[in-house]
Computed example of a mutant assay.
Amino acid sequence: MKNKTSFNFEKGRIVSSKYEIINKLGQGWEGEVYLVKEIDTHIERAAKFFYPERNPKNKTVKAYAKKLHKLRACNSLIKYIAKDTLEINDEVITYLLSDFVEGYTFDTYINSWHPEGMPFYQALHLFYSVVKALEEIHINKEWHGDVHSDNIIIQKSSLSYDLKLVDVFHLAHGEKGSIQQDVYDLCYLLYDSIGGKLNYKSQPKIVKDICCGLKKTLIKKKFRNATQIRVFLENSTWE
């Protein structure tokens, strides 16, 4: 398993004599996420398996689990359930289990329904839901650390959006995130949802007031956390 870049667990594999691999959900710098089924109950879970080289002495897993536990009251976060291990080629692999949430990723939703960008009014509604979800974390003086379109699951869309944030506390090459970086990522998310550079010039003032041309110095002057963005949205004219 040394320096291996992928586990490549096959469908039907039994893990720790407790779970059956259903399919792979995603892969990142820290490890891989699989949909698994609990053998005794047939309940589906999401299992994140950490690459050993990204988890020295279980430090990454412990920090990840503790942060999810601290933020357990945040409805926007998928709930942490348990930690377990398995052995591959004499190497212990640690994985975390959490609730499995069905829905579209933000990216899939945009590409499927609005491949050329969302109408700004609809984009603002979706953005507002993401901002409120992230605000729960910021109120607890914590940050998500990896806010992007693949880490947002849209469960329901109508006049408002029900969504969940996944993969909290991502450690990019050992670097911690920050609340301010979450804010930058939020602005990039809105920018991408309306179609990016191609459509940005034609956007109304409210969109440009939030995105600030993606200039971090301007964004930082206006917004230091998700609450400030929410208040701005609630007190601005959407036109």
Rank of each mutant, 00 (worst) to 15 (best):
K2C: 03
N3W: 10
N3D: 14
K4T: 12
T5P: 03
T5I: 11
S6T: 10
N8V: 01
I14P: 06
V15H: 04
S16Q: 09
K18T: 10
Y19M: 04
E30G: 00
G31T: 01
Y34W: 13
K37R: 15
D40N: 13
D40Y: 05
T41L: 07
T41R: 04
E44I: 07
R45H: 15
R45G: 00
Y51K: 01
Y51S: 00
P56K: 07
K59M: 10
T60L: 13
A63W: 06
A63Q: 13
H69V: 08
H69A: 08
C74V: 14
N75H: 12
N75R: 12
S76W: 09
I78F: 07
A82H: 09
A82Y: 09
A82R: 06
K83A: 08
E87C: 14
I88S: 07
N89K: 14
I93P: 05
F100W: 13
D107E: 15
T108H: 08
I110T: 10
N111L: 10
S112Y: 09
S112V: 04
M118C: 09
P119I: 08
Y121T: 11
Q122K: 14
A123W: 08
H125I: 15
L126F: 12
F127E: 04
S129P: 07
V130Y: 06
V130L: 15
K132H: 10
L134D: 05
E136I: 07
I137H: 08
H138W: 10
N140T: 06
G145K: 02
D146W: 01
D150C: 00
D150Y: 02
S157N: 10
L159Q: 12
L163N: 08
H170P: 00
A172V: 11
K176E: 14
G177F: 03
S178C: 06
Q180C: 02
Q181M: 08
Q181K: 14
L189F: 09
S193Q: 04
L198W: 07
N199Y: 06
P204R: 06
D209H: 01
D209L: 01
I210T: 01
C212K: 01
K215F: 05
R224C: 09
N225I: 02
A226W: 04
F232G: 01
L233Q: 05
L233K: 06
N235A: 03
S236Q: 13
S236Y: 09
